[in-house]
């Protein structure tokens, strides 16, 4: 579902220069500027590799943890059709996590290592998945807002300079095309339903609006290596540009539903042709990223439990494969 600009000014910097010569770096930049794709075995600056590993693995972790908030309503989906659609969507997220881990593995980091970094808390994932899903309407809101925000961010990644990431993103975007629409359709149904259902929809918008805006990451002024990532064409638009674009397309969608965006200062500026909004509560964002969101602990515990419970199973399969390989070698 999504990656986020999680990197903040003053924190450890994966983009800090490596041991390369100026000539190597210039030759690399020439390839990038010519819109050539970089492939796994090509020469690349260490910082480029580190930045990608960090971003792609964060993205993969977000997909995997992102299964949980929606998974929370799978057993309680209100119709068999909705149940099947939601399951297909949550499964896509598992698949997207898998494609992304594979893309990161081409850079020489193992899935085991990435999973270990997630479970130890060393690696981050998108803050949005640390919010609870309290009603069925939250499933609609997540599809509409969270996937909507994710699409804004992911479409440009299809043109990312790193070939395996770009190819994974093309597949992801193609598969995700139904995700946002199914979310909006849930909201439409609720808003055209009973008063209780409409209130449920409004409540979901109230809770998910601001966290969705935070998904684009800190303001440009506080985002560290945007400039380097932009030069390397890992990133193509700034956090604020994408956030503005999201607000501009989403507000009319809320109006169509007859819902109110929870921001008293939201207004359309005729001159700039953009919506203006109140300040984002960045303290909340940094708290959630630091582990102090409503569900951080619960999400990680579930992930750890799955990993621990599966250990004997993975081991059994590995040992079985070894036995079979030994037997066929002896035959």
């Amino acid at each position: 579902m999504y990656t986020q600009g999680l990197d903040q000014a003053g924190k450890s910097d994966p983009a800090k220069p490596g041991p390369e010569t100026r000539e190597q770096l210039d030759a690399f930049q020439t390839r990038i500027d010519a819109e050539e794709k970089i492939e796994a075995k090509d020469w690349m600056p260490e910082a480029y590799r580190r930045t990608l590993v960090r971003q792609i693995s964060q993205h993969a972790h977000s997909e995997i943890i992102g299964m949980q908030p929606e998974g929370n309503w799978l057993t309680r989906a209100p119709s068999l059709k909705r149940k099947a659609i939601l399951l297909a969507k949550v499964q896509d997220e598992a698949g997207h996590g898998l494609y992304l881990y594979s893309a990161a593995e081409t850079l020489g980091v193992s899935r085991d290592q990435m999973v270990a970094d997630l479970l130890s808390g060393k690696a981050k994932y998108s803050s949005i998945f640390n919010y609870p899903t309290l009603s069925w309407a939250d499933i609609g809101a997540i599809g509409w807002l969270v996937d909507g925000a994710a699409i804004m961010n992911q479409i440009p990644l299809c043109r990312c300079s790193y070939g395996p990431y770009s190819r994974a993103m093309i597949r992801v975007c193609k598969e995700e095309s139904f995700h946002q629409r199914q979310g909006y359709e849930i909201m439409l149904t609720l808003c055209g339903g009973t008063a209780e259902q409409k209130a449920m929809a409004q409540d979901a918008l109230n809770r998910f609006w601001w966290p969705s805006l935070m998904m684009f990451g800190p303001n440009d002024a506080n985002s560290t290596h945007s400039a380097q990532s932009m030069a390397w064409k890992i990133k193509r638009f700034s956090n604020d540009e994408l956030r503005q674009k999201f607000i501009d397309v989403t507000v009319p969608q809320a109006e169509f539903l007859g819902l109110t965006v929870p921001d008293d200062e939201l207004r359309y500026n005729e001159e700039t042709e953009h919506y203006e909004h109140s300040d984002i509560d960045w303290q909340e964002f940094f708290d959630v990223i630091a582990g102090n969101g409503p569900c951080n602990k619960q999400r990680m515990e579930k992930r750890r439990k799955a990993q621990d419970d599966g250990a004997w199973v993975r081991e059994a399969a590995r040992v079985y494969a070894e036995k079979k390989a030994a037997a066929s070698a002896a035959a």
Partner: peptide
């Protein structure tokens, strides 16, 4: 198409 992990 991509890759997968598998024991066998």
């Amino acid at each position: 198409a991509g890759s997968v992990h598998a024991a066998d």
